[in-house]
């Protein structure tokens, strides 16, 4: 008999969303509502994997990076300007970090294969984090990017044969949605900063790479996920209200995030499992 918290919809969707809403509401006044995304991700991770870090597997490294990324994000917001250079620097550092995360998998491959996979993973993570962190000063766009990227990564991971990674991706989307909802309800923008954008971009990118290296998500589907943060850069009139901006940008990022899943579904129709 499934208990309430054993249900995947609760673990990957409802619980991270509720925690995201609570954290966004609590910290909105302190301009730290962006903590919602790391808190929501950690909630899902607790239900799905638990907080055990021995041995330190790739999945556990990703979970460990959620609070670490939020903390680094807070420090960056305090001491660095939300400039493009900072976003690129965080992207490059995240790309290098992805090698550490997936080292246990790469080290088992042939040298050439390991180099290709490692370089591909680092490039992908660097691109996603740079694009997402580039939205640090634009909280509605950042929230929409997190929503589309998280849900898109989750859906693609489920189709790539890993439900647990799928739930982690969906949790990111749900928590980003909570961050966005707080702004919509209050009809007021808050600070996303690197506190939101770094965990959102880094965790989504790592969940995506994990779905490729540890399961069966094809690389081309992962590459298509870049459309989600790109869609958040589409110009939207600034004079329209925050909820309208959020709806327009969310529609764009959700549509873009759904492209890989639709692509995979059309290529190979059928139920995930």
């Amino acid at each position: 008999m499934l208990s309430f918290f054993d249900h995947p919809a609760i673990q990957g969707g409802v619980a991270p969303f509720v925690v995201g809403v609570v954290v966004a509401a609590l910290f909105f006044r302190f301009r730290l509502a962006g903590l919602a995304v790391a808190a929501g991700f950690c909630t899902a991770a607790y239900f799905i994997n638990g907080f055990s870090f021995t041995p330190l597997t790739a999945t556990r490294k990703i979970i460990l990076l959620a609070p670490a990324a939020a903390l680094i994000g807070i420090l960056c917001d305090a001491f660095a300007r939300p400039a493009r250079a900072t976003a690129v620097a965080l992207g490059l550092a995240s790309g290098a970090l992805s090698i550490w995360v997936f080292w246990s998998v790469l080290v088992q491959k042939d040298l050439l294969q390991a180099l290709a996979l490692g370089a591909g993973a680092a490039l992908w993570v660097a691109l996603v984090v740079s694009l997402t962190c580039g939205l640090a000063a634009q909280p509605v766009r950042a929230g929409a990017a997190g929503l589309g990227l998280g849900l898109g990564t989750g859906a693609a991971a489920v189709l790539g044969a890993t439900a647990s990674y799928g739930l982690l991706g969906i949790a990111l989307g749900a928590a980003a949605g909570a961050f966005l909802l707080a702004q919509m309800i209050l009809n007021r923008k808050t600070d996303a900063g690197f506190t939101f954008t770094l965990p959102a971009g880094l965790l989504a990118a790592l969940v995506g790479v994990g779905s490729v290296l540890l399961a069966q998500l094809p690389w081309h589907a992962l590459a298509l996920l870049l459309l989600a943060p790109l869609a958040a850069h589409v110009p939207v009139p600034e004079r329209v209200s925050v909820p309208v901006q959020a709806v327009i940008l969310s529609a764009l990022t959700l549509a873009a995030g759904a492209v890989p899943a639709v692509f995979m579904w059309r290529a190979e129709p059928g139920l995930p499992f």
């Binding site: 597997t57 790739a58 998998v105 044969a161 540890l214 399961a215």
Partner: peptide
């Protein structure tokens, strides 16, 4: 997959 034996 990582859901079970995480063979990779």
């Amino acid at each position: 997959s990582p859901d079970f034996f995480n063979a990779a």
